[in-house]
Amino acid sequence: MTDGPLVLVIDDEIQIRRLLRISLETNGYRVHETARGVDGLAEAARLRPDLVVLDLGLPDLDGLEVLRRLREWTQVPVLVLSVRASEEEKIALLDAGADDYLTKPFGVGELLARLRTAARHNQPAGESPVIEIGSLRVDLEKRRVWRDDVAVTLSNTEYSLLRLFVRHAGKVLTHSQILREVWGPGYAEEVHYLRVYVANLRKKIEQDPGNPTLLMTEPGVGYRLTTDPS
């Protein structure tokens, strides 16, 4: 138990903290709790945790502010918890550097899966240029894409889009993040570009484009390339 990943929980609700401690410790994590944002920031600097679970509604500091201050000096994965956050809030959090978000009420299974994905973000990439997710294989070095071992032809934009998703596999990317990366800073509002290209990309990489299992829609927020397709 002592060598499991250390999770710093910043949440003012004692009940949620208790639930998180029980669920996480039974799953091999070490847990440190704090109820206030200021304390959370101090503890993060002192303990250097492997993961941070941050609640949005803190009594002293806005959760978003805690996130910004954390990001000033560390890239530690941050999973945000919130009560029925609006899509705008979620987008703001992701743009400010949150790795993922989870809306209360949530299941413990979901929480563990998100934590696993978030932890992976922080690991140095295996430097392998070939990534495989389910039936999809992408060779970033040779710029090649296969589905079920059949080569797929992508346009330049489609490939740029896929490359972005692959590099951030498992992470939610907001519309504006994707548009800025692929089309450029001037295109952050052109969501319709994204809809058309994502639909095209799905036709090429998904088994059933009408029922995607790889490139998932996060309603109102963005897209996520899943890392463990079911």
Partner: peptide, 27 residues
């Protein structure tokens, strides 16, 4: 109840975006 009160209070702000219908259906 929250949805209802948002609708009733007129606080409901639509975030209109261009959306793909098949995406909507699959979600």
């Amino acid at each position: 109840l929250l949805d209802m009160s948002r609708l009733e209070s007129g606080m409901l702000r639509l975030r209109l975006e261009w959306c793909d219908v098949s995406d909507l259906v699959s979600v």
